Simulated assay, not measured.
Amino acid sequence: MTNKEQFSIGLIFLVFLKLGLTSFGGPVAHLGFFREEFVQRRRWLSEESYADLVALCQFLPGPASSQVGYAIGLRQGGTLGGLAAWLGFTMPSAAALIAFAYGVASMGDVQNAGWLQGLKVAAVAVVAKAVWGMAVQLCPDRPRATVALLAAIVALAWPTSITQVLIILAGGALGWVLYREAAGPVAVDLGAPSFSRRKGAIFLSAFFLLLFGLPVLVAWAPVIPLQVFESFYRSGSLVFGGGHVVLPLLQAEVVPPGWVGGDSFLAGYGAAQAVPGPLFTFAAYLGAAMAFGPGGWIGGLWALVAIFLPSVLLVQGALPFWETLRRIPTAQAALRGTNAAVVGILLAAMYDPVWTKGIHGPADVIVGLAAFGLLHFWKTPPWLVVILASLVGLVYLG
């Protein structure tokens, strides 16, 4: 990869725009698409460095897949690269949901649509390939394979976001015990080259300043736009586990005060399941559909920026310290355990919600196996597999 390619903001935007248009299936599927694109195809990251990023973003509140995407863009092109990655990945679903709020893209009842079922099945194949490939690379011996299996069992038995954090901590502790004598130097750079720990501290300070300062500002000046920004910023700051977790929290924020009606909220929730990209873009729909405040596309962008801003500040603030930490030999040993734990968490997520939401009968299994074969053996681009699965679903799965 040339330096020109590495730091091309336009390239970063276009690559993530393609992912934003084709990455259906929720955050776990997004991580599978990212791995296929950036580890397997473009080789922007190694398997180990990608797993490290996933582990870091599992610790941070907010949308994990969007944070991983932002971190990849940040690594390749600095802050502008991170923003380009976020914009490309987020823009398609945000635009579709704002349009839906206007009533331009009304899709009716999409929950049982055949094309949507095809997309869910394609997501199963993408995640299965990602989990298999990561397991081969990150769990090459019996101890790490055991850690991954135990992590999957615990994640399925107690499926909460706090459990995921505890699993990663336990995996790190086991890795430290098992591999502290075998840790060696790390050559992979995860952080943005021009980003210092001092700047990271500034971003982390900004995150906490807004988190605690915005409620004070709202109490002093209780205007609707400021209240909306504070509400969505707080939601993006305090939620672990991704988009499905933030949806009930957003309902509690916008429905009781009358900003968005209950029926309107449920209609947007249904539409959010049918678009690619991060579920956090549901905020764009809510901002556009609000009866108070700016509303329309301005309100949609206002809410969208508010809910994603915490993730931007946290990733930019945490990466410089993460890069320093992972160079310590004992931390390297712990990372071997955390990477195995991440494989286990993804294995559990492949069953629930990816498999349980996508596979309902023999026809779905057939389409899923065909999609996996195209991805794994025929090296078909994921976006093409997504389109083919959607067409098959439209004809046979509806």
Rank of each mutant, 00 (worst) to 15 (best):
F282S: 11
V239I: 15
S231W: 00
L210G: 00
G258R: 03
R198V: 13
V245M: 12
G243C: 10
Y285D: 01
A221M: 14
F195Q: 14
Q251A: 08
V246M: 05
P215I: 00
G243P: 04
P215R: 08
A252T: 09
Q227R: 13
L211A: 09
P276F: 01
F292V: 15
F195S: 15
A274V: 04
P256D: 08
A221G: 02
P222W: 12
V216L: 15
Y233D: 06
G277A: 07
R234G: 02
V254L: 03
P222Y: 10
V275A: 00
V275G: 06
S264Q: 15
E230R: 06
V260Y: 04
L279W: 03
V275D: 06
I202R: 13
F282T: 09
R197G: 15
P193G: 07
V246Y: 00
A267P: 02
A289S: 13
A206K: 03
A274E: 04
L214Q: 03
F208M: 07
V275T: 10
V223Q: 14
V246C: 01
F265Y: 12
P257S: 05
R197E: 12
A284E: 12
V254Q: 06
S231K: 10
V245A: 13
G242E: 11
L209Q: 01
P248A: 03
A252L: 05
V245I: 13
G243A: 14
L247V: 15
M290I: 04
E253C: 02
P256F: 08
L249K: 09
L210I: 02
V254R: 00
V254S: 02
V255Q: 10
R198L: 14
S235I: 10
G268C: 10
P225G: 03
S264A: 15
P276Y: 06
F232E: 02
W220P: 00
T281V: 15
W220C: 08
V218Q: 02
P278W: 12
G236V: 07
P276R: 05
A283F: 12
A289L: 09
F280Q: 08
L210M: 11
L279Q: 11
R198T: 14
P225C: 02
F292W: 09
A219L: 10
L279Y: 10
V254H: 00
I202T: 13
L238E: 08
F280Y: 15
P276Q: 05
L226Q: 03
S194F: 13
A206S: 12
D263G: 14
V223C: 00
F265Q: 01
